[in-house]
Design a protein around this nucleic acid. Structure first.
Lengths: 108, 108
DNA sequence: TCAACACATCGACGGCCGTCGATATCCCTG
DNA sequence: CAGGGATATCGACGGCCGTCGATGTGTTGA
């Protein structure tokens, strides 16, 4: 929904306005959950850096609806892409998405 | 409380376990709020990279108890330090704290 | 066409979080 | 020592979020 993180200077380099703060907080909220962090890690580590829901539900130890919910949040945050092939839905990291967020936090 | 962010490889480089995910999520939760992001930015931009509550309440547009609450959260997360001098409490960024979190998110 | 499968959506529940006003605590000044 | 000012803590309220079971949707294959 928002790729706010892809534009500006680190928040410690120049003052951040209310709107930018809200947008960055939205991205960080999407990341600030153990289950979603593990999903990111698991997808990145999976073969071809891609995984379907069925690959993730078991190892994560959460119900299938809950996993789908977290994946939807990550897609909405611009961190994952979703591509449906047949019955399966494959999720993949958006290149540079995490880096954009990280760049806004760094102080150096 | 936790400096979990200061040790490991980026989450996209190797699989993250449940415990590490919880700890990183805790740090990210502390950052995932517009008011706290603006506090970080305002403190970093302030003279001598340091500010007291009275410097922050007005510009932030929130009540003094709420500002104190957010500052406490950031201190607990290891992002701010607090030093009391006389009646005033001065808050300052912990060097490298944000970078440690950012390092765990980066993919490159 | 029907059954089975993968996944999404829905509705509900419990808990956590941001915010505030009121109040307590601490420190300085006179 | 008394008063005032800066900050922290408390208690409460409303809203958001993670989780689940039940159900809906769409695709595959017999």
């Amino acid at each position: 929904m928002t790729d706010v993180a892809a534009c500006c200077a680190p928040i410690t380099r120049e003052a951040i306005d209310q709107h930018s703060a809200t947008e960055l907080a939205r991205s960080l909220k999407a990341l600030a959950d153990p289950a979603r962090l593990r999903l990111i890690s698991m997808v990145a580590a999976h073969d071809d850096a891609e995984a379907c829901v069925c690959d993730l539900t078991g190892p994560l130890g959460l119900s299938q609806p809950t996993v789908s919910h977290h994946l939807k949040v990550l897609v909405a945050a611009g961190i994952f892409t979703r591509s449906q092939r047949g019955t399966w839905a494959y999720y993949r990291l958006v290149p540079g998405a995490l880096d954009s967020v990280a760049r806004l936090l760094v102080t150096a």
